[in-house]
Design a protein around this nucleic acid. Sequence first.
DNA 1: AATGAATTGTGAAATAATGCACATGAGTGG
DNA 2: CCACTCATGTGCATTATTTCACAATTCATT
Lengths: 213, 213
Amino acid sequence: MSKDSKIPNPTIQRLAIYSRPLEILLESGLPVMSSEKLAGLCGVNPAQVRKDLAYFGEFGIRGVGYDVRDLLQAIKGILATDREWALCIVGMGHLGSGLVQSENFKKRGYMVKAAFDSDAGKVGRKLACGLTIQSASGISQTVRKLGIEIGLITTPPHEAQRVAHLLQEGNVGAILNFTTIQIRTRKKCVIENADLSVKFENLVYHLEQLDKV
Amino acid sequence: MSKDSKIPNPTIQRLAIYSRPLEILLESGLPVMSSEKLAGLCGVNPAQVRKDLAYFGEFGIRGVGYDVRDLLQAIKGILATDREWALCIVGMGHLGSGLVQSENFKKRGYMVKAAFDSDAGKVGRKLACGLTIQSASGISQTVRKLGIEIGLITTPPHEAQRVAHLLQEGNVGAILNFTTIQIRTRKKCVIENADLSVKFENLVYHLEQLDKV
DNA sequence: AATGAATTGTGAAATAATGCACATGAGTGG
DNA sequence: CCACTCATGTGCATTATTTCACAATTCATT
Ligand SMILES: NC(=O)c1ccc[n+]([C@@H]2O[C@H](COP(=O)([O-])OP(=O)(O)OC[C@H]3O[C@@H](n4cnc5c(N)ncnc54)[C@H](O)[C@@H]3O)[C@@H](O)[C@H]2O)c1
Ligand SMILES: NC(=O)c1ccc[n+]([C@@H]2O[C@H](COP(=O)([O-])OP(=O)(O)OC[C@H]3O[C@@H](n4cnc5c(N)ncnc54)[C@H](O)[C@@H]3O)[C@@H](O)[C@H]2O)c1
């Protein structure tokens, strides 16, 4: 269970997805939930829900279902979203600024501790959230000093690899890369690519297929 | 190809990923590329690259490799990114504004034709790209009139399902949903969910696992 | 023209993920 | 206390995806 019995990656993604309706249902006071209902809300198979959870333990009651509060807490524990994480953003352009100003981060325990840009015209500018944009030259040092664990990259693509390097020098454990290139890493560091344009192209492909039929 | 020989979804995603280094390599003048090098740049297995392409035809030359220009064009043809697409954004908050102001869209042929918000304080505001924010009440009508094919949703989660409805009334063919809930659809419409927080939770989970070892 | 090196395209094997189907335990009502 | 219903947890079959391994083809060299 907590053994490294190799959890499928899709399972982790789905756990995150399951937690959304659970949060809403918890607020609305629903005490109990079945795998079938949850599956319906998330667009997956009920057996899938049960199997995903079974990788980590037994959270339900046979014949009854899952206690909403307990299940949500269990999922948060598994995903490690039940604590705060310190992060920084590199590249305060349109996307970076949009992300950092959003309330969504703080609400979920992601604390933006620093924002960097290489543009001298942007360095020193104060953001609504209280942070001041810092020069990209200080990334490694600042990241290390503030104990930042996660780095977001929203620079242009050709800068991403270099920035990733600096972040790793500063000892971040994970990088979320929004640019269109794949970052490579030598050090032990979790890399996740969130290339939005892949989503677009996926969409467009399927749309085209639809039209063809 | 036009056979429904069921293309794996991961294949489509990877085609998009392959196209990035190809674009760069084309500009830098490299004429030919092997599956092995391309695979290296994209972090996948070389056989995977060849198999992905093989679903759609033969694009390479044995013993030589792939012509960069031809391959890129072929991929764009497959993904249908070789033409313009009309899209709109609903929800001009932090994320929506960041997306729409980015140059990335236009550069890739995604033409933002309309931007909507329900906040009266935002309606009428003029954006840097020339568009004026319109009232969300006109979504269906405007979408239909302008022939918008793709709708982006960047409202708060609880509005997403309703907005999706309006977009479909206006006859969009595809929806890219950035909120945290899963949208359901009755009509024939391509839905893609781009829940960024799933990415975060994935990252945090793996980071926690690293620390444990 | 023949040899060797390179690299594709692809069937078949291996691996991964999903979904079925049912035994199992919990609650309910008589 | 028994029978019945519900919904979980899970072994196993099925389906999907990845990777291997090699014949086929191209090009360069002698
Ligand atoms: N916005 C989108 O819709 C979208 C979609 C897909 C992908 N992306 C990707 O997201 C990334 C950012 O997009 P954007 O629209 O915000 O771009 P942008 O040009 O608005 O912002 C980039 C910012 O990075 C800064 N920068 C450049 N080099 C830097 C460095 N070495 N260190 C620190 N900062 C540096 C620039 O000064 C600028 O402020 C791009 O890689 C783009 O491909 C964006
Ligand atoms: N920004 C992030 O980092 C981030 C991360 C993960 C998910 N998200 C998701 O992205 C979405 C948007 O995030 P944001 O930070 O931009 O939020 P935001 O609050 O800044 O913007 C939401 C905008 O939608 C508008 N709106 C509300 N109801 C509407 C309706 N019915 N029709 C049209 N417009 C409407 C609001 O007026 C507001 O301008 C949210 O669902 C959020 O969960 C954002």
